[in-house]
Design a protein around this nucleic acid. Structure first.
Lengths: 337, 337
DNA sequence: AAAGCGATTGCACACAAGTGCATTTCTTCG
DNA sequence: CGAAGAAATGCACTTGTGTGCAATCGCTTT
């Protein structure tokens, strides 16, 4: 039989009609702790099943929390970002939230538009993985009762809680590793993204080197990518004085850098050149690279996010710092040559 | 105990009060084509701005389409999946939709739970990238007026529209490439995922080889991953009769396979061994691999999805096939040795 | 000035839920 | 058998929108 009515979602009213009870009874059947007799509950569940009823979370979200969390993210295809999104969606789901992903550019205008979307959908919280939203907009979010959590972003934005890895530690430790390997001519490879995190890793590394009386040649190629790493290597080894120890502020940069150093300039790693990365993306562990790097502990970070969500009062202006975990592989010599 | 009013979202009513107009006027101000005088519109916009008002899309979604699209996906960290999610979220956003990501396992029970979530949030459509939902649940979605679009899934699920790359073409072409390179002892590497797509690539490759009187040694390692590719290589080259031409049904498998073949068994690619992959993930183009493979045309696929969303009537039980694009790199010889 | 007419505006309802409160039903005990 | 108490139920209101319908406003025309 062909239906006249266009298909549409089945509501609690329809279930109530079919079960011969009031709509309230249906509502209570699907609400924990509400008072419903076993008999009605059975009738309701049966009718709901027959009609294919599903509670409308949108309508529910009108009165109480929506249970929606927005993830504002750029460069999703980057391995580290993909993992972040993966881990976060998993943990958020496990704690009863649903994730909306807003794929954006990193410029302020795009991020602002993303934040506004976040408000449009009454998200309980927004987690920002990329870009830096304007303070005024964050304030709007917060005055609307929405939490804002920044990950690896510029710290100290009034009212938002923020969360990041200890870049300074990585910068110092990277220098230590390269020096222990006996590297004398140090290089640093970074991208033009100029993120707070990247800048800090660079600054601390350069500073720590200066403290030992060493100068660092800093090379900034294009965006944070494999190709930029390649480009940086071409530039670095095209010069007269080539480095023998390099800290790449990102694994992707490191991998591109290594490939060109080895293939185009015939350098052996770690014999002629030591390389340290940051992130510990999957590819860093591949046999072709075996990159020594610092792991962003994504699971603990995601746990922290969930924790902040569950205790909103904790969240105000708090800044949590997480230690990256050194991962020793073969791109740095264990001792001097 | 004097409770401060908890911060909450500002509603159209508040804006109306402040602007001294009716709530309808506010609603009309934010509705295209509605009739509002320039004067009230200005007053409303001013009040809205002052209060930080944002239209509640949840409430809007009660009456009309929610503009929510759910993406059901597993293995998000896999480069190909990450790119799919990236491209899809981008294109969906561009056409005014918002994406909810449901990160799931591939087993039927998890996928079913994901589909139910989809219904709970009144998504206009669900796009399934992983796993195979039970037909009954798809039917429920459709009878609720929700579109279901399956990508690279088992075809022919009543009522859903489905979309996939031409695996048969890839299987045939892979054989052609290897034969042209003069490979005599053929191997095929697959995972234990047993997806329809993977199975088809395998079947067609084996069949095409049989048509030329050649037998293919099929190796199935663990899940679809780099590590499984490594494992497969260890097994394959541990045997007496090693292949000189291999089709890996996935780039990730291919990369792991290549690394072990070269590093642990000293094989030169493409001189001693030719390798063909599938997907064209970013890493396939890296200098260390230069893998010849087939690109999944993600942009056209995403365009197709958006197209199906905008023309729901088209969507019923349609199956669209997209040709993968051969990408010739250096893992296969251009001619016989 | 009155009528005509189109552009605005507000009322009230619909959408789909949860819940306080009053009412009804059931259970249990005296 | 009746009353007290507990459990179950339904009514009506709430959440924030969009919109049909009727009323009103302002302007033009005769």
């Amino acid at each position: 039989m062909s239906e006249l009515k266009p298909p549409s979602f089945v509501s609690a009213q329809m279930v109530a009609d079919r079960a011969g009870v009031s709509r309230s009874a249906v509502s209570r059947t699907f609400t924990d702790g509400a008072s419903v007799s076993e008999a009605t509950r059975r009738k309701v569940l049966e009718a709901a099943d027959a009609l294919g009823y599903h509670v409308n979370h949108l309508a529910r979200g009108l009165r109480e929390r929506s249970n929606i969390v927005c993830l504002v993210v750029a460069d999703m295809t980057t391995p580290i970002r993909a993992r972040m999104v993966d881990v976060l969606t998993r943990k958020l789901q496990a704690s009863g939230k649903i994730t909306m992903v807003i794929n954006t550019e990193t410029d302020t205008e795009s991020v602002s538009a993303a934040l506004r979307q976040t408000l449009n959908y009454r998200a309980d919280a927004t987690v920002v993985l990329s870009g830096t939203p304007p303070a005024s907009l964050i304030e709007t979010c917060i005055s609307n009762g929405q939490q804002v959590i920044l990950i690896n972003r510029d710290e100290r934005l009034q009212g938002s809680s923020s969360l990041g890895v200890d870049n300074a530690m990585a910068g110092r430790e990277a220098l230590f590793l390269l020096r222990r390997a006996g590297c004398e001519r140090l290089g640093l490879i970074t991208s033009n993204a100029r993120t707070a995190s990247l800048v800090e890793r660079e600054a601390v590394f350069v500073e720590a080197a200066a403290a030992e009386g060493l100068q660092v040649v800093v090379t900034e190629a294009g965006p944070t990518s494999y190709e930029s790493g390649q480009e940086a290597a071409r530039r670095v080894f095209g010069r007269s004085e080539a480095p023998d120890g390099v800290f790449c502020v990102t694994d992707l940069l490191a991998l591109g850098f290594m490939d060109v150093a080895r293939r185009d300039f015939g350098l052996a790693i770690p014999d002629d050149l030591c390389v340290v990365g940051f992130d510990d993306i999957e590819q860093a562990g591949w046999a072709s690279y075996q990159l020594t790097t610092f792991r962003q502990p994504l699971n603990p970070m995601a746990d922290e996010v969930v924790d902040l969500l569950l205790q909103p009062q904790r969240a105000v202006s708090e800044r949590r710092m997480i230690e990256p975990i050194p991962v020793w592989r073969r791109s740095v010599r264990p001792g001097k040559r």
